[in-house]
């Protein structure tokens, strides 16, 4: 019980694609290791499903505009979105 990373739904929903995928990998490992009980496996499984959904959300993000970095370092949209 050294540290307890934040695995709340809110925290998971803010993970980057890469981080979320890495978390799913560790969830799979934890379940496969058999060291956690079935009950814990179930909650971990649900978290894994949630993280995969998070990844799909990232994938489905709407088309991003091409921005230009202005002189004062503010990215500005190059034309309005469609």
């Amino acid at each position: 019980m050294a540290k307890r990373p934040d695995h709340s739904e809110k925290a998971d929903a803010e993970l980057s694609f890469e981080d979320a995928l890495a978390q799913v990998e560790s969830v799979i490992e934890a379940i496969e290791s058999g060291e956690i009980g079935l009950e814990k496996s179930l909650t971990e499984y649900e978290r894994g499903v949630r993280l995969i959904k998070r990844c799909r959300d990232v994938l489905a993000t709407a088309e991003q505009r091409i921005e230009m970095l202005s002189k004062d370092l503010k990215p500005v949209g190059k034309g309005e979105p469609d």
Binding site: I28, G34, S41, Y45
Partner: peptide, 14 residues
């Protein structure tokens, strides 16, 4: 494929 692996991990665990 990750989702499949997750599912089969749980099934095996059960």
């Amino acid at each position: 494929s990750t989702l499949r692996r997750l599912g089969s991990a749980l099934t095996r665990s059960a």
